[in-house]
């Protein structure tokens, strides 16, 4: 799911939004994390940078919109960056690592209520019937079962984060 930038009434700052320095630092970030494409939005500004020769944009955004979009005036918070390419190279997940993906669209809750602990923690063992999270859709709170046995190795989303169908939520080591 790609997120839009915050559009709740912030004024744009008048700066040279296409400054070379800003673009240069974005390109360095991309190289550092081996990103192929970065698409940043902030209010009505947007910049999209593609890296590598294989990338052929199928449909570029219409040019009439282009002047309204520009690099953000400050580095955006991490949540607003949409990474289209793969995350930084890490050890490849073995066949024993299962990713639990969202079965529905809604808002993810990692704990049963604001005062409780999370349903699961990293390192915790779970079984197929364990409730690992709640996804709220249309005011209905759906308890999501793990449907797998193992140990939680990574929690991929934050509490109260909107999730769409297929979004990776948890990584489980089935050997654990």
């Amino acid at each position: 799911m790609t997120d839009s930038g915050d559009n709740q009434g912030r004024e744009e700052q008048s700066e040279d939004v296409f400054s070379v320095e800003r673009i240069r630092s974005l390109v360095e970030l991309m190289k550092e994390h081996d990103l192929k494409e970065v698409d940043l939005r902030h209010f009505r500004q947007r910049i999209r940078i593609c890296r590598g020769t294989n990338e052929v944009p199928v449909m570029a955004p219409p040019t009439m919109i282009a002047p309204q979009y520009a690099a953000p005036s400050a580095p955006p918070p991490a949540a607003q960056v949409s990474q289209v390419a793969a995350p930084p190279p890490a050890a490849a997940d073995g066949p024993h690592i299962v990713t639990i993906k969202s079965p529905m669209v809604g808002t993810l809750y990692l704990r049963p209520n604001p005062k409780s602990d999370s349903f699961v923690k990293v390192g915790q063992s779970i079984n197929p019937e364990s409730t690992i999270c709640i996804i709220e859709a249309m005011k209905v709170f759906n308890e999501i079962p793990a449907e797998v046995r193992g140990k939680v190795v990574e929690i991929l989303c934050g509490n109260e984060e909107p999730v769409d169908f297929g979004k990776p939520l948890f990584k489980i080591d089935t050997r654990g």
């Binding site: 799911m1 790609t2 997120d3 449909m59 955004p61 669209v105 769409d164 169908f165 297929g166 979004k167």
Partner: peptide, 15 residues
């Protein structure tokens, strides 16, 4: 689909 990239936000709703 190309138009999915053009949206301000794209949400996957199922298989």
């Amino acid at each position: 689909a190309p138009y999915v990239r053009l949206a301000d936000q794209a949400i996957c709703i199922g298989p």
